[in-house]
Design a protein around this nucleic acid. Sequence first.
DNA 1: TGATAAGCGAGACGGTACGTCAAGTCTTTGA
DNA 2: TCAAAGACTTGACGTACCGTCTCGCTTATCA
Lengths: 192, 192, 192, 192
Amino acid sequence: MTSPNPDRRSERARQAILEAALELCQQQSFAGLTMEGIAKRAGVGKQTIYRWWPSKAAILLEALMERAVDTLDFPDTGDVVADLRTQMTLVVHAFNDPMFSAYSRGLIAAAQSDPEIAAAVVDTVIKPRVDLCVERLEKAQKSGDLRADLDPQDVVELLYAPLYYRLLLHTRPVTEAQVDTILQLTFTGVAG
Amino acid sequence: MTSPNPDRRSERARQAILEAALELCQQQSFAGLTMEGIAKRAGVGKQTIYRWWPSKAAILLEALMERAVDTLDFPDTGDVVADLRTQMTLVVHAFNDPMFSAYSRGLIAAAQSDPEIAAAVVDTVIKPRVDLCVERLEKAQKSGDLRADLDPQDVVELLYAPLYYRLLLHTRPVTEAQVDTILQLTFTGVAG
Amino acid sequence: MTSPNPDRRSERARQAILEAALELCQQQSFAGLTMEGIAKRAGVGKQTIYRWWPSKAAILLEALMERAVDTLDFPDTGDVVADLRTQMTLVVHAFNDPMFSAYSRGLIAAAQSDPEIAAAVVDTVIKPRVDLCVERLEKAQKSGDLRADLDPQDVVELLYAPLYYRLLLHTRPVTEAQVDTILQLTFTGVAG
Amino acid sequence: MTSPNPDRRSERARQAILEAALELCQQQSFAGLTMEGIAKRAGVGKQTIYRWWPSKAAILLEALMERAVDTLDFPDTGDVVADLRTQMTLVVHAFNDPMFSAYSRGLIAAAQSDPEIAAAVVDTVIKPRVDLCVERLEKAQKSGDLRADLDPQDVVELLYAPLYYRLLLHTRPVTEAQVDTILQLTFTGVAG
DNA sequence: TGATAAGCGAGACGGTACGTCAAGTCTTTGA
DNA sequence: TCAAAGACTTGACGTACCGTCTCGCTTATCA
């Protein structure tokens, strides 16, 4: 079996495909996205897509990674709660951006029936951001702003999970106020 | 326009369809579920399915609701943390049941591209369970076991969101240990 | 097996069905005619149709027979060619009537795949008319206007077949001029 | 609009489809022929059929044309009646061949509700054969075997129409004897 | 500096499932 | 007790995409 040679790959085609995938996903949501549609919109043969990507989710993931390299740094003002609020607010804004929201929800939906996608999403999207947050929380532990006896990973989950919960379950909108509530409850504790 | 008359509906067909949907979803996951497959397995015409349900997700939802009317009560031993642990552990078990996990993840995935499904899932699955938890938490507020100045809804989210987070994002397995961690962090607070 | 009792048959339903069949056939041609459409238009249960007729062609045939009892007599002026011209011209007019043409062509088409229909069409439509023509031709043989050594049946075929030929094959329109030509050629002979 | 490119057409698929159509039409008559059945039998996707043919009648017509290129010449022995008898006898045999009969009657039936088919049948099947007969008749006119004052087209109709009449109306079988009768009556005339 | 082999666009191919339509049967309800 | 109403199973319809394949056509190394 001869796998394709990346050196000869057409960058033009690659960009056109990523671009087409993003545009079509905006217009028709992830579920309405088709390989055929992407190929046509990109002016590309279907084979060219199948040669380099295993699924439409993989395309979208790559498109997102390529374009959304932003916000990959975590502020450190010394005030950990303020820094978390800053960063979580960015997430709130992203989740409220119709385009980003469509992409994210589509990808997570796809991940439910495709372990490869699930792994890729975690590795390329979730993990790096979680790690940055963990780093910041470890600093907070050293500075005494966060209890030292707990796993920062768990705290990250506690803080961010409610945002995903609302994004995916559509119970209530994801808002900045929610961030305040989460931080308030988490840091102070809910015990009477 | 003449919509179908529910009085004349065949209960036999309805049950066969729900049963077939559940069985096929187990075998092939939600994404592999097809209207055609359900019809064949149930020994039913496709038209009969389309007459009564708008989508495969709607079928699955009804099947689940009909069969899983269980665990709809919240314990009240006086110890709110213990009661939450009991109930959350049930959820952990459900999320670890391959069948239930497949159903849930499939439904939530479907909800991402179908607002009707999203609303139905929230109304019939999420909301009733959240309400029960809210009730229990309100009692806890009266008994002084939970801070009275906060919205129980927010606490429910804080507690359960991390379970959904792991279920849907596949970062780590959903475990009983996680429940302990969540309860510990949430009630005590994470501040240093 | 209990066959339906004709005495209890609803004449109202029967008439409504025949009427509906004719109307719908006009609007949508025979091929577009459906049992469902007839039932709906007639305000009748489908079962009522299936109880009394085996096919839509049978309905149409009965409808035609009931309404088109006209022109079932053959003129006899003493001039056999003139009489034939008169009668054949009636057929030409019928074949040029869009409604009658649609009915006829539909029935004959249906007869190609349903021997029952074929037999019924011949027995109730073709045969009686052929017989009348045969009678007239026999008189002509007695009066010496037609060769006595030939089978009138064959002559009838020779005269009328070209009209059906054009009706069904759509090579040329069926016209009064055609009648003249047929009569001229047939009576005089084509030999040089 | 992008119509399919005939250069890339698969001859294998084309042949398989034509073959399957002929075989199935033999087994189940034209009315029982389905696109789905043809596709399955031919081992072909339905789309491949719809890409190249508008209807099952069109397939059958092409299949017939491809296989039945035979008998497209008209004998000329100098004796026009004998030549006509020869050629008409071929038609009688064809009409008595169950397979050919099924095909023909099916096509003509289809033509009654589809003008495109009607036109195609006339153009590809009827017209070429009529033209050959006309040619022969024109020679006969020159040689004085046929009256010169008449349109050969009309004579062709007079001769062949009775064969079609019996084929389609099923009044009597199409036989060689019928050919003799037709020729006898037509050439001698029926006048007393 | 050709040849030659790869990726490319295009799109036909065998398939699967879609959602609709009508067929003919079966069941319930009302007159 | 029959007819209306219409839900039922069945199966073909014609369409949309799937993922594979085969064409010529660039295009970019290497002999």
